[in-house]
């Protein structure tokens, strides 16, 4: 002990090294999310006659580590809307709680939930835009599936910057590169919705998930699939990629040490 009471109980720098104040910083700039941590990969969705189908695998990655393998990235809102999340899983959970609280408030009145998927998408896109404007983004790219006010199938996207767009088929992340071309080939954009059946749409999504499993290193062969129709939501959260054929892998040469 020395003659400096203010130093009593403090670790000596010559023993422990100088304390790095970065770890216990109460002033100065506040750090917001700079990059996502635990993430989900693509979500794919397609509209069909009378509804929308949407799919996402059950994986949450921590960088290149397949961290959680039973994660449900398709979330129900009310009885006729689904939100599919890619990107940061903790932000997804935050948004899910937000949606839950909205749903509870909606049900205070007895006429029930009046928010359709279109309203939900508008709301979520504004939440995302507000957070990006505060430099504190919610690190997600979401797809919202359901119906609009005219009971027509609705599918739209919103990302962490608040950018929104809609199309007959949409995919986030790797799916934008791998799944969209498949969906476009199956259902060209000029195809009237009436000529796409639910079964065709579901089969197409299963195919997309399979291709993503083949080629997206952050994907999983277990996935969830949801279909929103007038009758309600059917959601299956324990699907398995089937009828895989890895024959094509034999033909891939020229990477790494092996050149021929």
């Amino acid at each position: 002990m020395n003659h400096f009471p203010e130093a009593w109980g403090r670790p000596r720098d010559d023993v422990y090294g100088a304390y790095n104040p970065l770890y216990l910083q109460t002033t100065g700039p506040k750090a917001h999310t700079q990059s996502p941590a635990v993430t989900g990969t693509s979500v794919v969705a397609v509209k069909f006659n009378g509804g929308v189908a949407i799919a996402a695998d059950n994986l949450a990655s921590y960088g290149s580590l397949a961290r959680f393998t039973d994660v449900k990235r398709l979330r129900k809102f009310g009885e006729s809307a689904i939100v599919g999340f890619s990107g940061d899983v903790s932000d997804m959970q935050y948004i899910d709680r937000l949606l839950e609280s909205i749903d509870i408030r909606e049900n205070y009145s007895t006429n029930g939930n009046t928010l359709n998927a279109k309203n939900l998408h508008t709301y979520l896109s504004k939440v995302l835009y507000k957070r990006r404007s505060e430099f504190n983004p919610l690190w997600n790219h979401i797809l919202v599936a359901g119906f609009d006010e005219d009971k027509k199938p609705f599918l739209s996207s919103a990302d962490l910057l608040g950018t929104t767009f809609s199309a007959p088929h949409l995919a986030t992340g790797f799916g934008a590169h791998l799944a969209i071309p498949i969906l476009r080939r199956l259902f060209p954009e000029e195809t009237p919705l009436e000529s796409i059946s639910k079964d065709e749409a579901v089969a197409a999504l299963r195919e997309c998930i399979k291709v993503l499993w083949y080629r997206d290193a952050r994907s999983l062969d277990k996935y969830s699939l949801a279909v929103v129709t007038e009758a309600g939501i059917e959601i299956q959260e324990d699907q398995q990629v089937e009828a895989q054929s890895w024959a094509f892998a034999e033909a891939i040469k020229g990477y790494g040490a092996q050149v021929n």
Partner: peptide, 13 residues
């Protein structure tokens, strides 16, 4: 003998 005290100004931006 050095002791560390909190010093907010030393945190780099």
């Amino acid at each position: 003998i050095g002791y560390s005290f909190s010093n907010a100004n030393s945190a780099p931006h």
